[in-house]
């Protein structure tokens, strides 16, 4: 997996709660096999029915076309389990989402793809957003080593919490399947013992 250490760049702000994964990547892009998911990011909000851009949508405006950070509202990524939501964000160039809270499945999916989801209280987000340097430049610095988000040329920034194991996995670029496959013998032993304990689980539809 790709590593995540630090990220500096433009942050687009979408102050809506419950931005769901259907909004992030509408199903019409998912079922169009081979289509670039980054182009489909926020598809219905980003384009008119004829495919032309909606100029009022934040990601269609400079400098946010080059955003690599997204700041959202409560419960970001709720809804469908579609990992395409994470792939669409990455396809567009977003590597980090900052929000007060996240849908559980989106949160999990993000880590699997080196997209950093940062849980940050709305008051703290507001402090960053009101920083004059952010108002002027729309840029943030995300540092996973020190667990801080700051504004270039602005204040010292805000600390964020993250599970130490998840942080380490991103910093090192660990592959989650490789990690688990270190335990193949234990998995086999568990299955063997469990077959004796709960035989019906391991032989679906069988029995005497």
């Amino acid at each position: 997996m790709d590593k995540f250490t630090t990220l500096t760049g433009t942050a687009a702000v979408m102050p809506l709660e419950n931005i769901n994964t259907d909004a992030i990547i509408p199903v019409t892009w998912i079922v169009n096999y081979g289509r670039d998911l980054g182009e489909g990011l926020f598809g219905v909000w980003r384009y008119h029915a004829d495919g032309t851009e909606r100029t009022e949508f934040v990601l269609n405006q400079a400098p946010y076309r080059d955003a690599c950070i997204l700041v959202g509202g409560r419960n970001f990524g709720c809804g469908s389990s579609r990992e395409e939501a994470v792939w669409a964000l990455l396809g567009f160039g977003i590597r980090c989402v900052i929000a007060p809270s996240f849908g559980d499945i989106f949160y999990e999916n993000s880590f699997k793809n080196a997209l950093l989801p940062i849980r940050m209280a709305q008051e703290d987000i507001d402090v960053l957003m009101r920083d004059p340097a952010f108002v002027a430049g729309a840029k943030l610095v995300v540092d996973l080593e020190t667990c801080r988000v700051s504004v270039p040329g602005g204040s010292n920034g805000i600390a964020f919490d993250i599970d130490p194991a998840r942080r380490e996995a991103l910093l090192q670029g660990f592959d989650h399947i490789d990690l688990t496959r270190q335990h193949v013998d234990e998995i086999a032993a568990f299955q063997a013992a469990d077959k004796a304990r709960r035989p019906w689980v391991h032989a679906p539809g069988k029995g005497e």
Partner: peptide, 20 residues
């Protein structure tokens, strides 16, 4: 519970899942 595609791959590969 529902999982993403990366976790689907993990379950296919190992018949396990890492969860808190």
């Amino acid at each position: 519970w529902g999982i993403g595609s990366s976790e689907v791959e993990h379950v296919l590969a190992t018949q396990t899942i890492v969860q808190t």
